[in-house]
Deep mutational scan, measured.
Amino acid sequence: MDVFMKGLSKAKEGVVAAAEKTKQGVAEAAGKTKEGVLYVGSKTKEGVVHGVATVAEKTKEQVTNVGGAVVTGVTAVAQKTVEGAGSIAAATGFVKKDQLGKNEEGAPQEGILEDMPVDPDNEAYEMPSEEGYQDYEPEA
């Protein structure tokens, strides 16, 4: 019985440690998101679009440190934060509304985080759909 109880105690310690790591990862992701939003706020009209992409990228980098179902929630929060940063930029006159959601080359930025393969159960990952990809044929 002692062996059984000791095993359960060790398992509990492992769960607590994993929860603490997840909590730490979420806190880091939130900190990076805040950094990115402050970065966007300090940019001029020309830099705002690039700044919004930076927020998304920093958040995406930190999301990889967070495991399990938390990833889905962090990704949703990050996307809403990026959308909010863009709205703030438009409201303050840093950028025109028609410039939001495009990178410096004018290509749409939507789907940055949505296409990231995420499995809350950590069982399997699927690649994003290939609808947006084109076949590449090298020139002879």
Score class of each variant (00 low, 15 high):
91 A>Q: 05
36 G>N: 08
46 E>A: 11
120 P>S: 08
15 V>G: 02
125 Y>Q: 15
114 E>W: 14
43 K>R: 13
85 A>C: 14
96 K>Q: 12
42 S>V: 11
135 D>F: 10
27 A>P: 00
57 E>R: 12
134 Q>K: 15
19 A>G: 02
25 G>E: 14
1 M>Q: 00
124 A>S: 05
119 D>Q: 12
64 T>E: 07
109 Q>S: 14
75 T>Y: 12
88 I>C: 04
126 E>A: 15
138 P>W: 10
129 S>P: 11
44 T>V: 06
63 V>W: 14
104 E>V: 01
64 T>R: 05
109 Q>R: 09
57 E>D: 13
19 A>K: 04
129 S>W: 08
136 Y>Q: 07
46 E>K: 13
129 S>I: 06
92 T>G: 07
54 T>D: 01
2 D>Y: 10
16 V>L: 08
89 A>N: 01
132 G>Q: 08
84 G>N: 02
130 E>S: 08
114 E>I: 09
93 G>I: 15
58 K>G: 01
66 V>N: 01
81 T>Y: 12
28 E>H: 14
24 Q>M: 14
31 G>T: 03
61 E>F: 05
139 E>Y: 13
24 Q>S: 09
140 A>M: 08
16 V>M: 15
120 P>A: 13
42 S>R: 15
15 V>L: 11
134 Q>Y: 05
122 N>F: 04
123 E>M: 05
13 E>C: 03
17 A>F: 06
99 Q>S: 08
24 Q>A: 01
34 K>C: 06
70 V>Y: 08
20 E>M: 10
137 E>G: 08
87 S>H: 10
132 G>K: 11
68 G>K: 15
47 G>A: 13
120 P>R: 11
70 V>N: 01
117 P>C: 08
77 V>A: 13
107 A>V: 07
138 P>T: 05
5 M>D: 01
69 A>R: 03
97 K>G: 12
124 A>L: 05
67 G>M: 12
93 G>V: 12
81 T>L: 11
42 S>Q: 07
7 G>M: 14
73 G>R: 09
65 N>D: 03
113 L>M: 09
77 V>T: 02
140 A>F: 13
37 V>G: 02
31 G>K: 15
20 E>S: 05
51 G>V: 15
59 T>R: 01
4 F>R: 00
108 P>D: 01
79 Q>I: 12
103 N>K: 04
26 V>T: 01
115 D>E: 11
110 E>N: 08
